[in-house]
């Protein structure tokens, strides 16, 4: 089992004719993902890597029964592309694009409350169910099928932790990058809820970072609702206040909210061990299993 994507997922790639879209479509196909269509206005009728391109997402869904989309559209048009996907009744939209204006995302966020579609991202690496489907830019070869769920705000940190798990022979049910922006679709809590409901997931890794209060909310959710054990990691312990550490969302504000200490202590209080190193996170998972 897995969450959100599996080998029945049928993918439409928005922005498939661009450099990134094309490259990662090839990578997703190589991984075995069912990429069934592309959607690019004005490019309908073309083919990319053997995948038929349509002018609208609606046409792609109509013709190819797509159930999920991956958005590689440039930031200026990404908000609109996400709206198009949300209005087409897909199950899941994965927005890879980095640099989407925050006010565009506030409008998307409002729409999300009105539809059943899930959004991952933006500014995220995507989602992978090892051996079944990969939607996004994650390097497939580091993942192994198994029984640990993983949810993270950062792409490359996800790869680091996954490789620590895979090296020990610990595989993953599904790994999700939720994205590093201030306003994102799927939150830690949404992902944890799905892992808790998945009978195949026996333990979960949650990688957070400084900024915002999502990790604190996740800690509350874990304490109140989860039987599946969770191990945590928080990046940014040494980050100075007021400086944005790469991700738009990764900033400790002047009044001291969003600090690593606050997140670590919230998780510890919820019974979640937080590793000082990625290795220690893998140790905790090994203990759980």
């Amino acid at each position: 089992m897995s969450i959100f994507v599996d080998d029945d997922t049928r993918v439409v790639v928005q922005g498939i004719t661009g450099g990134e879209g094309k490259f990662h479509t090839q990578q997703m196909l190589d991984y075995g993902t069912n990429v069934v269509a592309g959607a690019v206005p004005g490019k309908g009728g073309q083919e990319v890597e053997g995948v038929p391109v349509y002018d609208t997402v609606d046409q792609a869904v109509e013709a190819e029964d797509a159930t999920a989309s991956v958005v590689f559209v440039p930031p200026a048009f990404a908000g609109d592309a996400i709206f198009e996907a949300l209005d087409t009744d897909l199950d899941l939209v994965v927005a890879i694009t980095e640099g989407v204006p925050t006010q565009d995302m506030a409008k998307v966020n409002k729409r999300l409350g009105e539809v059943d579609t899930k959004l991952l991202g933006p500014n995220c690496p995507g989602i992978i169910t090892p051996g079944e489907a990969k939607l996004g830019i994650l390097p497939g070869n580091i993942f192994e099928s198994g029984n640990v769920g993983l949810v993270s705000r950062s792409g490359t940190l996800t790869y680091q932790v996954v490789s620590n798990l895979t090296e020990r022979g610990i595989g993953q049910t599904t790994a999700i990058g939720i994205g590093g922006d201030p306003i994102i679709g799927t939150s830690f809590v949404d992902a944890l809820e799905a892992f808790e409901a998945d009978p195949e997931t026996d333990a979960v890794v949650m990688c957070g970072e400084i900024g915002g209060e999502d990790e604190e909310q996740a800690a509350k959710y874990i304490a109140e609702n989860m039987d599946t054990p969770v191990a945590g990691f928080i990046a940014g312990r040494t980050a100075p206040p007021g400086k944005r550490m790469g991700h738009a969302g990764a900033i400790v504000s002047g009044s001291g909210t969003g600090t690593a200490e606050s997140k670590i202590s919230a998780l510890n209080d919820a019974g979640v061990p937080v590793g000082d190193t990625p290795e220690e996170v893998a140790d905790s998972i090994e203990d759980f299993l």
């Binding site: 950062s154 940190l157 940014g236 040494t238 980050a239 790469g246 990764a250």
Partner: peptide, 17 residues
């Protein structure tokens, strides 16, 4: 020097650790 905000922050934290 690293790639990706989360991993670079983690590298900083490990230097401190």
């Amino acid at each position: 020097i690293g790639n990706g905000a989360g991993l670079v922050m983690t590298t900083l934290d490990l230097v401190d650790y």
